[in-house]
Computed example of a mutant assay.
Amino acid sequence: MLRWSITFIVIALVAAVLGFGGIAGAAAGIAKILFFVFLVLFVISLLTRGVRK
């Protein structure tokens, strides 16, 4: 999931450099959502691993 987030942020940066503001904004929004989903899942994973041990 983190890989997808990085991919979308790279797409956003390239689109912004080339002047495609709408595509850059959409890709940055998707990257932000994916990053926060990854972060939540990572924290849940850490908590469940700590409870099991």
Rank of each mutant, 00 (worst) to 15 (best):
M1A: 14
L2H: 10
R3I: 05
R3P: 00
R3L: 09
W4V: 00
S5T: 09
S5R: 06
S5I: 00
I6H: 08
I6P: 00
T7H: 15
F8C: 08
F8H: 13
I9E: 01
I9S: 14
I9T: 11
V10T: 13
V10A: 09
V10I: 11
V10E: 11
I11M: 06
A12D: 03
A12S: 11
V14E: 05
V14M: 01
V14R: 00
A15V: 05
A15E: 00
A16W: 00
A16T: 10
L18G: 03
L18K: 13
G19A: 10
G19L: 00
G19V: 10
G19S: 12
F20G: 03
G21N: 06
G21H: 00
G22F: 03
G22E: 11
I23P: 05
I23F: 12
A24E: 02
A24M: 02
A24N: 04
G25R: 03
G25I: 03
G25D: 04
G25E: 01
A27M: 11
A27F: 06
G29S: 10
G29Y: 01
I30G: 09
A31I: 02
A31M: 01
A31H: 01
A31R: 07
A31Q: 03
K32V: 14
I33S: 07
I33R: 01
I33C: 05
L34C: 08
L34Y: 01
L34H: 02
L34K: 08
F35G: 12
F35Y: 15
F36C: 00
F36G: 00
V37A: 09
V37H: 02
V37P: 04
F38M: 07
L39C: 02
L39F: 05
V40S: 12
V40L: 10
V40C: 11
V40N: 12
V43M: 12
V43I: 15
V43Q: 11
I44M: 11
S45A: 14
S45Y: 02
S45K: 14
L46P: 01
L47K: 15
L47T: 15
L47I: 15
L47E: 01
T48W: 02
T48P: 04
R49L: 12
V51S: 04
V51W: 02
R52L: 14
R52H: 08
R52T: 11
K53M: 05
K53L: 09
